[in-house]
């Protein structure tokens, strides 16, 4: 991210305008697409503001998970297919803390974050470290193996019956909040607020702390940072721990919305991938923006009677479309291929 100080120049303004246009372009495309669909299916699909508000709230969860993916991809070049399952595991830890150890919800959230940091760090040290410079196929297969192990362990320990956690911000009897002429349930409000706080903390960490600076440096140029005295491998471990924490947050706030079972992260992971790809795999801001966009798209599509039960395939279609039309995503940087 290049930041120039001083007065605002007109080319910079143009640049921002272009970026903004790029960011909203999927919505414009969606709008026209929906207009066509509306015409074809006699008004079945609508672009209601309720969908947009709910979509943004729901999208914050996807954005958080996508942010976790992007953090790892940027620092270690690993697409972590196990991200969702790691989050699932941590969420179950929070469930155990709350219902079995009778912790306070917020205390359990903190406890889960601590656990997830340790969990992520251990996984990085034990599983990812040996394959750091391995070819892509190896990395993909190892993270998929991790996916399978963590998923099966989750089934093993917590069984498959769906569970639920009642969050304190969404106790029975609390009313939905009215916003922009749409009503937003408390579960959504809580998810939105908590994920935005976490994203803000991540932003502050990377931009205003020395540790964050060191992390960014080691992601951008490991060799040079090592020469400057940055402990690169420690930074990578910290990156994994952070990503696991962000993922765990996404899991914990998603539970009041959709319930908890060992498979609940698979759908979320798909949307998170769609968000990350849409925003650009190496852009944290893109991941968050992509999350909001995917949330909106999902809600608009889910609002139509025709497409209601195929929301997941729509996320897949988004992935394919983005990859074919603009592989770098909305805000990602261009990949240079070395030969």
């Amino acid at each position: 991210m290049v930041r120039t100080r001083g007065s605002l120049r007109s080319d910079q303004l143009l640049h921002w305008l272009a970026q903004a246009l790029i960011v909203v372009s999927p919505l414009i495309v969606l709008y026209f697409l929906l207009a066509v669909l509306k015409w074809v299916f006699n008004g079945d699909v609508v672009f209601d503001r309720q969908y947009i508000v709910t979509g943004i709230a729901q999208g914050s969860v996807y954005g958080a998970l996508a942010l976790a993916l992007v953090l790892i991809y940027r620092s270690t070049d690993v697409i972590n297919f196990a991200q969702g399952e790691m989050a699932m595991f941590c969420t179950f830890i929070s469930w155990s803390l709350i219902t079995q150890a009778h912790w306070n919800w917020y205390a359990a959230l903190v406890g889960t974050l601590v656990f997830s940091a340790i969990f992520g760090a251990i996984i990085q040290r034990v599983v990812i470290r040996p394959i750091e410079n391995a070819p892509l196929l190896t990395v993909v297969i190892v993270t998929l193996g991790l996916f399978q192990v963590v998923n099966s362990l989750g089934v093993f320990i917590w069984q498959t019956q769906p569970k639920t956690i009642v969050a304190p911000y969404a106790k029975v009897g609390t009313k939905a909040i009215q916003i922009f002429g749409a009503s937003l349930g408390r579960t959504y409000v809580g998810a939105l607020v908590i994920t935005i706080v976490v994203m803000g903390l991540i932003y502050v960490f990377f931009n205003y702390t020395k540790l964050g600076l060191a992390s960014r440096a080691s992601a951008q140029n490991p060799v040079a940072s090592r020469l400057c005295g940055v402990p690169v491998s420690l930074m990578l471990t910290i990156g994994w721990a952070l990503a696991a924490m962000v993922g765990a947050t996404a899991g914990v706030v998603a539970v009041p919305i959709q319930g908890l079972d060992p498979e609940f992260m698979q759908g979320l992971l798909l949307y998170a991938f769609a968000a990350a790809v849409l925003g650009g795999l190496d852009s944290p801001v893109g991941a968050v923006v992509g999350g909001f966009l995917i949330g909106i798209i999902q809600n608009v599509v889910g609002g139509s009677a025709l497409l209601k039960d195929i929301k997941d395939p729509v996320a897949f279609v988004v992935i394919i479309l983005v990859l074919v039309v603009r592989p770098t995503g909305l805000l990602g940087s261009k990949q240079v291929r070395k030969v």
């Binding site: 697409i79 892509l136 993909v140 798909l270 991938f273 790809v277 897949f316 992935i319 394919i320 990859l323």
Partner: peptide, 9 residues
């Protein structure tokens, strides 16, 4: 990775 993501989707 992109192909892997797409097929995973």
């Amino acid at each position: 990775p992109y192909l892997a993501i797409a097929t995973l989707g």
